[in-house]
Every structure is written in C-alpha cells, then in structure tokens.
Design a protein around this nucleic acid. Structure first.
Lengths: 185, 185
DNA sequence: GGGTGGGCACACCGATCTGTGTGGAAACGC
DNA sequence: GCGTTTCCACACAGATCGGTGTGCCCACCC
C-alpha cells in the first residue's frame, strides 16, 4: 500500500481520456489498461468491474464550483465564457454525464444518479448566484439558465460551432435582466 | 420486386424502436432482425451493413414541419408544448440525432451530416416563423430558441422531469417578447 | 541474502459482435 | 407441372467483449 495511488490515478487518467473521447461503450477494458500502461490484471485488481470503472470516471468528473469575487450575475455569465473556451479548444465531446446516460441507455441507473448529483449541485449554485443578483425568481431562472447551458453543449456537439456559447450567453443576459437581476453592462 | 417495400419497412420499424430505446451500439443486427420477424440474411439483403441501417434509421427520423394557421409566435411556442407531451409519454430517450453523434463518437461523420440537415432545417423553420412574428433578430433568436429546445431535451434525459419543457417555453416567451415579436398573451 | 508481495505477460473462458455462405422450403408466373 | 424468385434456418468466420487464472520476475524489506 506504499504508493498504490499512482496506480488508480493512472487508470483514471487513461479512462477519462478514452471514455470521454471515444465513448464508454466503444472503449474496452483492454484499451484502458493499455493506455494506462498497465496490465489488464492490475486494472481488475484495482477496479472490480468495468461498471465500477465507469462510475469512478463519472464521479471524478464532479468538481466543486470555485468561489469568486466577481459580481454574482457576472459569475453566471462567466459560465458561458468558460463554455466558449472549452468549445474552442477543439476536443470537446459534450457533457460526460449526459453522454453516459445516453450511451448506457437501459443500464444507466448508476450513471444517472451521479449525473443528477452534479446537475442539481450546479443548479443550486446558479440559483444562489441569481438570488444574490436580486432575481425575482431565482430557482426557475436557474433552471432556464441551465437549459441554455445544456442546449449550447448539445448544439456544439453536432454543429461544432463555438458561437452557440455566445448566443446562449446573450439569451441568459436577456432572461436575467427580465427577472430584475442586476447584471453589469 | 413485387412487394419488397414491406420488407424494408418492417426492418425500419424494428430498427427505430430498438436503436432509439436501447441505443445504437447496444443493439446488434441479430436483435433488429428478430424484432422485425425476419432472418438476418434477409436484413443483409436489404441493407448492406449496419452503418447503412443506422443511416436509414436517422434519415427516416427527419420529417417535415407541418404547415399551421396558428399565429407564428404561437407555432414556435407550440414546439415546446409538443416537447412536453412527448416528455410526459414516458418512453422519451432524447434526440435521436444527438444520441447517434454521441454514441458513434469517432465514427459519427455520416450521422452528424444527417443531424445537421435536420437541425438546420428546423432552425430555418423557426427563423421564418420569428420573422413573421416581427422579431428584430430572427436568426439569432431562432438559434437561442433552438438552444432552449436542445437544453430541455438533454435535461429531460437525465432529470426525467417533463416540466423542463414548460420552463423552456417560458424562457422562449421572454426572449421573443424582448426581441419585439408579437406573441399572444 | 532470503523471503514477500506487487505487478506483468499470457493464455483462456464464454458470450457477443458484424458479416457471409448454403441448402431447402414456400410462393409465384407461365 | 416447372422454373424462378424470395425468404428462412442454420452454421460459420474472425474479431472483440468483460472477466479470470497462473506463473514469473523484480523490487523491496528485514
């Protein structure tokens, strides 16, 4: 148990690259082991099954939202700027959680639970910011902003045009202004 | 060639059910043949490969937007009502085009082309309606309305809560009003 | 230096995948 | 009645899937 951490760590890095880029169903366990530079046997000594590996991959994709000293409305709009930058990089392949639910289809229960955790947390985070910004209906508005984010992601995946992020940003601005939130010019 | 039509037809019905509900990668050719009540040999006599079958499945999913005598803004909002009804049925599994692009990942070129055809046609259709409604920026607004549609679909797939459609509808109403379109109360 | 254990290479299992080849049984036209 | 076409049942090919069993080697610890 000296430093088994690098073991699981390397596996997760490889799984993240492969699962996200090529798809969960399209990537076999052998490919993950090869990408990680370890044997399949070692992989199965660390994760009991591919399902467990997939679950770990998804859980690792959940990262907390960093605190910021920007005005709350700007923080919401910054989400779209971050989206735009991720779109422009070129290796964007959609939302890993939505993709997992789509790919796993009838076996997506575990994946959906993890996806729900993330989406709920993000919506609560946005609702908090909108409350600070003085929006009259922060919960509904947070859902609508979330819809724009998800829509931009889905549209980007088929259109491959990063400007959908800026269009979503403008729509979010209109919605926030209409809800009485103070958004900087 | 007497009545081979029912042959391809039955295959397409089976493929549509299976591919949409269980996923393209998760459904084998044998399963499609069994669901269609034909032999695998007959399937391969009609479609040369699974790829061709998938392409036909996607192409068949493109249906023209029916004409309507409702006011144009109401026609746009009616899209969200239709979405809500499809969500409430219970067998909703996302947008087949986005799902195909997601599932096929690195081999999604053909699927993406078909998906683009559909999405572009829908956006043009919406832009036309918004022009009739007197929106000041029909093209951008059509993109934003599309974002709300795609977002509602993606959110529905993980949250399984049909009310996302009504939230999207309300957001679309706000955006259309802000763009100067005449939308009935 | 001798033991111990973690990791690897490799072979293997049964199942499933796409795609093909074949023989025979119905249904049809003449 | 006969030939032709259509389709099915079935077996097969080669590859890949998730998952396991085994034996060896090398590094580390005492």
């Amino acid at each position: 148990m000296t430093e088994r951490a690098p073991m699981a760590e390397r596996i997760m890095e490889a799984a993240d690259r492969l699962f996200y880029q090529k798809g969960i169903r399209a990537v076999g366990v052998d490919a993950v082991a090869a990408e990680a530079g370890i044997s399949k046997r070692s992989l199965y000594d660390t994760f009991p099954s591919k399902d467990a590996l997939v679950a770990a991959y998804l859980r690792q994709r959940i990262q907390p939202f960093p605190a910021s000293d920007l005005p709350p409305a700007s923080q919401v709009l910054a989400l779209f700027d971050q989206l735009f930058m991720r779109f422009a990089i070129g290796d964007f392949r959609g939302c890993p959680f939505v993709n997992a639910v789509t790919e796993l289809a009838e076996d997506c229960d575990a994946a959906r639970a993890i996806a729900l955790d993330y989406k709920n947390e993000r919506r609560r985070h946005i609702a908090g910011l909108l409350t600070q910004a003085g929006a009259s209906n922060p919960d509904t508005l947070a859902s609508q902003v979330t819809l724009l984010i998800e829509g931009a992601i889905a549209s980007m995946q088929v259109r491959q045009d990063p400007t959908v992020a800026t269009q979503a940003r403008e729509a979010a601005t209109v919605l926030m202004r209409a809800a009485g939130a103070t958004v900087s010019p």
